[in-house]
Computed example of a mutant assay.
Amino acid sequence: MTEDNNPQLYSLSRRKMVAGLGVVGLASAGAGVGTSAFFSDEESFENNTLTAGTLDMSVTANVVAADDYWTGQGALDLSETADGDVVSGIQVDDVKPGDWALICFDIEVGDNPGYVQVRTEEFVENGGANPEPEQDVEGDTDNDADLGEFLLTTVWQNYDETSGDKTGLSTLDPVFNNASDDLNISYGSPDVDGVVDGVTHYTNAREANGVLENGYLIKDDNGDLLPINDQANEGVYSFCLLLEIPFQVGNVIQGDSISFDLVFETEQVRHNEDPFNNTVPVNNSTGGQ
């Protein structure tokens, strides 16, 4: 049976074919919509970089003045900078009443402001030799170590290096020298002869160690933490340590000795409300310096 012999079948087949072509036409129209361009735009920020900052401290110690004996022992030759490597400090034997030395420490914190803490470690007193004059004044043969009690150890804020001696000192640090209740911090400068009167108390080595052994954070005149190398305190912070044995001490310290390490540490100021206590900082949106 052919299409010519069956007109109805021929007619139906044409409709089906036309309908099928219509579907193909719709599919093609859909594909055309899918490939057309929408409105669009593109912006970019390239070469983004985050670099961690640095906090680097150096400490320079200079013996700026001393009595004749310490000078003869080469104490004035001490000018050392600690910046990564441990350096040796003062080493003087045979000190006697009347001897003194003035050591100034310059603390420099680079790049970012930092809080600075000073600590003593390995503070050791030794009775050493115990000759008869020492036994007589102590009234026994126990050979107590007494140098820590009689070696005056005071921190001074200001020093005029042109003086060349203790007369260049002007202000006792009011925060560091706080070990004794009767310390007269308004006292201007020490007696040049190392004489201690009955009113003024100077911090001794034991008391200084009591302040330093747990860490002493450097503070300003008001007792607030002092950021070193911030906008208000740029550059170098300096303080001077006066070591002195007054004439009145006498035989009680014969043969005694003291040794200690002096350690300087710094921590960043930013986001650090409780430095050197290793507590977790509180998040805030104000940022820092």
Rank of each mutant, 00 (worst) to 15 (best):
G288C: 06
E244H: 05
V24Q: 05
P227G: 06
G198E: 11
Y69L: 03
T141N: 11
N222G: 14
D224Y: 11
V23D: 00
Y10P: 02
I258P: 04
T71I: 06
Q231I: 04
S36D: 14
S44T: 09
P131Y: 07
P7T: 04
S44H: 10
A65F: 08
G74K: 04
D142T: 07
P246D: 02
D144N: 13
E80Q: 15
L241Q: 01
S259N: 11
E3K: 09
Q268D: 05
F260S: 12
A82T: 09
V263E: 13
G72A: 07
D67K: 05
L12S: 10
S170Q: 09
F260T: 14
S13E: 08
G53K: 07
N143S: 01
D197W: 03
D67T: 02
E42F: 11
A27S: 10
G223Y: 11
V249G: 04
G34R: 10
P246K: 04
N158D: 15
E244P: 00
M1Y: 10
L262A: 07
V199Q: 08
V280P: 05
L183R: 15
A75P: 08
F39G: 15
Q91P: 05
T120I: 07
Y159P: 05
L172K: 06
D67V: 01
I258T: 02
N284R: 11
V95S: 14
L151G: 03
Q73K: 15
V59A: 02
D274E: 13
V95G: 14
W70C: 07
V95H: 07
N272D: 02
A129K: 04
N178I: 05
L21E: 00
I90F: 14
L9F: 12
A31K: 11
E121P: 01
G34C: 12
L243P: 06
A179R: 10
L242I: 04
G148L: 03
L12P: 03
C104M: 09
D193N: 11
W156T: 03
T286P: 00
N272A: 02
G188V: 12
S189E: 11
E108S: 09
T266Q: 09
C240D: 04
A31M: 13
D144M: 04
D85V: 08
A101P: 06
V24N: 00
A29N: 06
S259E: 13
Q8C: 05
G210D: 15
L226K: 08
S170M: 05
G110W: 00
W70G: 00
V211W: 09
N48S: 12
E122N: 15
Y159V: 01
N229D: 01
P190L: 02
D181R: 15
V59E: 01
T35D: 06
T54C: 07
K16P: 00
S259C: 01
T153V: 03
G188E: 12
G98S: 12
D173E: 06
